[in-house]
Amino acid sequence: MKKLLSILTVFMFTVSTFAQLNLKSDAAHSRIQFTVTHLGINDITGNFDKADLTIKADEKNFVNSKLTFSADVNSINTHIEARDNHLKSADFFDAAKFPTMDFTSTSLTKTKKDQYTLKGNLTMHGVTKPVTLTLIYKGSTVNAMNKKTTYGYQVLGTLNRSEFNVGPNFPAPMISDLVSIKGDFELTAE
């Protein structure tokens, strides 16, 4: 009986180990892009060049997976240095005080093939709020350079910057309150 229990324990541990795949984003091929409307007439786009996505993927049922992502606020890049420095200042993100934006999933619901509603908590500028995003699985391939399977995921959504107290002295007619985000990530198993 002891031997049977021992075998069952090893089997259960082995099954649970292989049922979860820990995926980590490749920094060189991952970033979060944002778009705001300036003066009501023009879209301004920028990136957080340093962004990480981690997925603890449940291989049997992906909706049970857990996702986290983080962006380094100091990596903001709108291709205008003066604007980037202003966005890092206390007028907007206050990067010295709040150096990262962080997201942790609370639920994942499949909406159609390779697309999910992703709910979770976003912390930005010291404020944590629930947000709803879209997660799209873009596919996988074996990378010829490192021979590892690479997975592609995209995160899409919109946020109201006022809910996170970002740029409170800049009204919506100057800079839109609504911010579109798009995160593109390549991930490999750890």
Rank of each mutant, 00 (worst) to 15 (best):
V15T: 07
K129I: 14
F48I: 09
P173T: 13
L135I: 12
Y153V: 15
G157M: 05
S65K: 12
D184N: 15
F170P: 01
E190M: 06
K138H: 09
F170G: 00
R161F: 01
F185C: 06
N61Y: 11
S75M: 08
H86I: 04
H79W: 10
D84Q: 11
N160F: 05
T134G: 03
A51Q: 05
T117E: 12
K60E: 13
V155T: 02
A90Y: 09
Y153N: 11
A189E: 15
I175E: 00
F62M: 08
H125S: 02
T100I: 14
D177A: 10
A90M: 05
A90L: 04
N169L: 08
K66L: 14
I175V: 15
F185Q: 06
V155N: 02
L23M: 13
N47F: 14
N165L: 11
A19Q: 09
H29T: 14
D72P: 01
S70D: 09
E186F: 12
K119W: 03
T78G: 04
S6E: 04
S70M: 12
T54R: 01
Q33M: 13
T117R: 08
K147Y: 07
L53A: 05
V15H: 01
I41R: 07
F92M: 06
D84R: 07
I181W: 06
D43W: 06
G46I: 06
T54E: 08
N121D: 14
K147P: 01
A19S: 10
T100E: 13
T37W: 01
M12L: 14
K110D: 11
G157V: 10
A51C: 09
T117G: 03
T150K: 01
G120L: 05
L122A: 04
P99K: 08
K110A: 15
V73G: 06
N85A: 11
A27N: 08
L87W: 06
V10K: 00
A96M: 04
N61I: 09
T45A: 03
L133R: 02
T150I: 04
S30I: 12
L118E: 03
K66N: 15
L118D: 01
L156H: 04
M145W: 13
S16C: 11
M101G: 04
D177I: 03
A144Y: 13
T37M: 05
D114K: 09
T128R: 04
K119D: 15
M124V: 13
L178Y: 00
T14Q: 03
F11D: 07
K66C: 11
F93V: 09
T106G: 04
G183M: 09
P173S: 08
T149I: 11
